[in-house]
Amino acid sequence: MIPLSNFMMLSAALFVIGLYAVLVKRNVIQLLIGIEFMINAALINFVAAGKSDKNYMGGQMTALFTIVIAAASVAVALAIILNVYKYYKSIDPDKLNKLRD
């Protein structure tokens, strides 16, 4: 059996990659992809740990629900990005800074 810790390291790596994408990329869509990475990292954790939770299937259940939520979240975010593009003609997060101190 593959030890749980391997899965966890994989998910940690994915999480960090996602975090990097969120913090650095100049394209909002790529930012969303980074967020997806982070979610998927968590999913891996869930599924991997769910192997030992046969009674309640907590991990698998959570994974399914999370995929749905992630999809909804991305859909809404994309719609909002379209809206922003209408006004700013750009999807560079740095350009979206009219609201500031």
């Binding site: 909002i80 209408k86 997060p93």
Partner: peptide, 13 residues
Amino acid sequence: DGKQAEASIKYAL
């Protein structure tokens, strides 16, 4: 207007 769109995207992201 632009501000409202910007607010929503910041919130979402």
